[in-house]
Design a protein around this nucleic acid. Structure first.
Lengths: 158, 158
DNA sequence: GTAAAATACTTGACATGTCAAGTATTTAGC
DNA sequence: GCTAAATACTTGACATGTCAAGTATTTTAC
């Protein structure tokens, strides 16, 4: 530091690393926006994701370990997240007779109803975010390429 | 439910909503991967992001409120995250004589050194993630478009 | 068949944030 | 210039996860 004017001459941050950091921030911004809207239905962003995954699953139920893999949590995290959802009756535990280690999580009728109501709100937010007003330079066509990239990066919830 | 075979006939999840959920999962996967590598430098993923933002800031310092906006946290979150970083001497608090409400956070010499070492590790992970092996269909050329989209979605850390 | 390894899940201790409220200081409006 | 509003930051209480370790059950390998 011989110079008083500290110019940032070397900023060797690669585009790849920038992308990862920017993706994290985008997640924070977007999830917060959905969270706000979903709170009107009494559930959070993660709760919504869990309900959605169960809703799309065959028989609307899943092994906890598979749910964990889908949503990107640890098994422990799934156990923790499901506790309040079971308590308010949106999901229920189902034993698996062929393997006593396994317990399935299934969507209840109430859970399905709450999810479908919340989905409407979530879609409003999503459409708002991706309205052509806000997304200008990157056109709607590019959404597919964007989604493909996300999937390759591990983002394959649904 | 009159049918025994429960077909999922209606799955009206829009591409926009899917994209948001997949983006969140991608964040979890990617940040976990970086976190693992950064732990060897004694810092976490968020710590790294904070150090990076400060490193790129003019004078390598920032008001806490501006740091919060950059990283996408609440002001409270920034206060909390900075406590351990101050304690181990990677950042330091700097008073602002023109406004007593404000306190700047600046990178220390040690903080700069640790960051630059951690950056090497982070870049290795980033290059690995975006190596053409893993990213096949979406080519490296598309990274720019992807980054543009992220920026429009609020992902503008750097 | 049985011991060892693997798998599914839970739990205690803790990290990393948020939200609502509070303090201190500055700015704006009259 | 003085009061009210806005801004910057912190703090207590809490939510949402992780990690390491533990339990129970099943599978593998000999």
């Amino acid at each position: 530091m011989s110079s008083i004017l500290q110019l940032n001459i070397m900023t060797p941050i690669s585009p790849s690393l920038k992308l990862i950091l920017n993706l994290s921030k985008a997640h924070v911004i977007l999830s917060r926006r959905l969270e706000t809207r979903l709170s009107g239905h009494g559930i959070g962003y993660t709760d919504f994701a869990i309900l959605l995954i169960l809703h799309e699953a065959p028989g609307q139920k899943l092994r906890r370990v598979d749910l964990a893999e889908k949503i990107g949590f640890t098994a422990s995290g799934v156990t923790r997240m499901l506790i309040p959802l079971e308590k308010i009756g949106l999901v229920q535990r189902e034993a698996y007779e062929r393997d006593a280690r396994v317990s399935y999580v299934g969507l209840t009728d109430i859970g399905k109803q709450i999810f479908e109501e919340a989905l409407v709100s979530a879609e409003v937010v999503a459409q708002d975010i991706f309205s052509t007003d806000t997304i200008t330079t990157a056109k709607a066509k590019k959404l597919d390429a964007f989604s493909d990239m996300l999937t390759e990066l591990g983002g394959n919830i649904i």
